[in-house]
Structure formats: structure tokens, C-alpha cells
Design a protein around this nucleic acid. Sequence first.
RNA 1: GUGACCGUAGCUCAGUUGGUCAGAGCACCGGGCUGUGGCCCCGGGGAUCGUGGGUUCAAAUCCCACCGGUCACCCCA
Length: 423
Amino acid sequence: MVKAVRGFKDILPGEAEKWCYLERLACKYFRAYSFQEIRIPILEKTELFARSIGQATDIVEKEMYTFLDRNKESLTLRPEATAGICRALIEHGLYAKAKVIKLYTIGPMFRHERPQKGRLRQFHQIDAEVFGSHSAGTDAEIILLAWEILTAGGAKGLRMEINSLGCPQCRPRFRDALQEFLEQSKAKLCEDCQRRTQKNPLRALDCKNENCQKLYEKAPLIEDFWCSACREHFLEVQQYLKQWNLVYEINPRLVRGLDYYVRTTFEIKAPQLGAQDTVAAGGRYDGLVKALGGPDIPGIGFAIGIERFLLVAQLPDLTPRLDLYAIPLGKRAYMTLLPVVQNLRQEGLMVELDHEGRSLKALLKQANKLKAKAALILGDNELDQGIVLLRNMETGRQKELPLEPQKELLKRLQQELGAPCDS
RNA sequence: GUGACCGUAGCUCAGUUGGUCAGAGCACCGGGCUGUGGCCCCGGGGAUCGUGGGUUCAAAUCCCACCGGUCACCCCA
């Protein structure tokens, strides 16, 4: 039989409710922070990602779902959301609508990696971006927002790590110094770090090899290279985070896999997740919009991995409770119940109606399994008496309600069943 | 892309040195209770034992390949 593509997973009933819950939770926070939703395509021209994420990154070099369209144009399933949002911002001139634009989107991303815990080929992100602000206050606010969404989802054991990567004024000097350091200790480095020395020296810093980490204790630190503006900015961010009571650690080795990040960068980790422990990450990318052909406006954002969020989230019981199970015994009863059910559903009650003509016993069993609050039983006996039975499924007590007038019946039913669930 | 472990009903798993080994529990459907659920008892449907080769008189069981899963490397959300 045909199975789902490797690394692409179905989100089944029981699981989907959790997704819906977390997405709504995130939307609630975005609203509170005055973000607007944007929905962008999952397919973009390959060039967009090559130019934004960076040609030399792993994502672009070997992880993208890239193919030729029928007209021979190279297209790519988005591996992240920032590039597409920048594109839309520029293409529609959204930056002209206000000095500061705050956007969010939720949806699937695609990267061709070997699947493992917390890592799929189609995965989902809750993504936020702010354009037009250089202020350190914006950095702090974005970090706080990510943290609050995660903690509101009951995520436990989270750690916030922050760092500043410097800017185009100061980072090159650090890069050179680091590269020189790596060259000197080249013989002792692991294979990967030897490779990184040339290609992406910053990445060597978060190598997991113990020997390498030991060596890097003596490596130059970015903080010794920050220009005064970057130093000032980073201190200011921390000042605000403290005022918000956010507990964080400074990780001088924290770097990012995407080229466009500058200055503030952060990761929220949940160590209990194992190898893929970053639940959310983000940072500032001031030169990106310009590099993509837009005006020179700054940006900062983050992404939360929904699958990883779900692994650490503590959710309330989300199993749906049926308000009413309508049980018709015979065609005449069925016909009578149709408009009743229709009406109750229009009022927002969750109502199940049997179309299969199964036995009363079987249907009560079913109602019990679906955790119905009540069952509405109608058979020939009741029809002849002009009544219907409302059975409370918890107590087993039954009430006789007059069938006519229907308006009265509906009113009684709504009284008995209470207000519909909001969800 | 590399490595380790794994792959038997929808789910969780038994299956002894290859020889009634195609099983159990849960779930599902029905009956006991001809119109009253949750407990109990009984019965039923449902599996080309991941796929394809090979060894053998005989393979779920041994060998090879492929596919898939899990975890780790790598990378990252």
C-alpha cells in the first residue's frame, strides 16, 4: 500500500486537538502583543532562500526540497518563514503602512534531513517578525513573547540563552581572530571543525565534541570584539529583560545556522528533549530586507517548533464531550428528530444522531463511549404518548418531555443541556 | 548523508534449538438482557508475519538486499 512520505506525518484525531489548542494560544498572545497575521505561500523561487539564508549554509546546500517547475523555473518548499515574509513585505510595500510592522504566521516548513525525535521533514512553526525597529526594547519584547507563549502552553524545564553576534562593523574582526585561533589548533580539532574553520568558523563554537569544547574555552570571545554600539544595545536588551523578570543565561558560544542574523540572538531549550532540544530560536536580521531588494529597514523575529513545543507542553484534557446523542427507534422517530437535531446544532450544541438504525442498547453504549452528557430517546411508545425521553448519562435518570410544541421542547432541551461548549 | 537497534491483527505484544506458530490482551461488532450504557460472561470479523530474493523436505524464525521506524551523529525549530 501507499504510505506517507518519509518524515511527513499525519496529525490524527486526538492529536489535532492539541495543535489547535496551541495555535489558538499563540494567536491569543500575538493579539495581545498587537501582531497581525500574514499567510504566505509554502512555495517560493529557490533564489529567495539562497540569497537570504545563505548559499553556504547546510539548509541551502543540502536540505531544501528544490525542483524544477514545468516551465523549468527552480522552486523550493520553504525551509523557514522569514524569507517569504520579507519578500511579501517588500512586494506589497507593507513597510510603508507604519514605522513598525509586526507580523506572525503559523504553518509547515520543509527540510530534507534524516528524521529523528523532534525532527521531521515537514515540520511546523509559529513564526513572528518585527520590521522597522532598531530599538533594544523590541529585541526584549520579542524574546519575552516567545517565552510567554511557551510557558502559557505549560512547557516545563525551559532555559533561555541569549547572545549578541555583533554587527557588520565588529563581527568580521571576531571572525578573523577566531579563524586564526582555529588554524593554530587545527591538528587537535575534530574533522567537522577543521572543515568549519574555513567555511563557517562561528559554527565551530557549538560543536558537541568534548575535545573541541575544551579547546574553545580558550578561544576568543565575541564580547571582546563588540563595537560600542553593539555592546550598548546588548546591555540595554538585558536591562529590559530583567525588568520583565525573565531569567536568562548569556551563552557566548550561541551562534545561528542562518547567515542573516546580527546582534541579538536567542534560543529557548528544553534539555529533556534530547538531541533536538531547541524549542524556539530567533534573532535580529537588520540587513536582510535590503539584501532582498527592499528598503534598508531592520528586522527581528523568532520561530517556535510546534512539534517540539508539543513534546514539552502540558495541556488540559481536550477530549470533546458530546452534548447529546439522539437515538431514534424507527423511521417515524428518525423523521421527528431531524429538525430537533438541526436546531440544537444551530445553537452550537455538539449533537450526534444515529442514521444506522442500531439497537437502543448499542446506541447507549456508543453514547457512553463518546462521553455524551445526555441521550434523547424516541420510539413508537413515546410517539404515541407525544413525549420524548431525555436520559442523563451520568445519573441514568430519565425525564419525559412533551414533543409539542417543538419550540417548547427545544427550550427545555437547551435548559437541561446547559450552555454549549465554546471550543 | 553516516551509525546502532528494530519491523507479527487498528493498538500493545507472545511466538522456545527452523517442524499445527498464525496467537493473546485492548479496540471494534454482535449476543446473554426481544426498548436502556458503564461491570461480567460468550461469540464474531480482522494479519499476503514490512517488501523481494535466497538456504531448506520445511522459514515469522537463518542469510542478503531494499523499504520503513526509533535513537544518535550531522544540522536545526
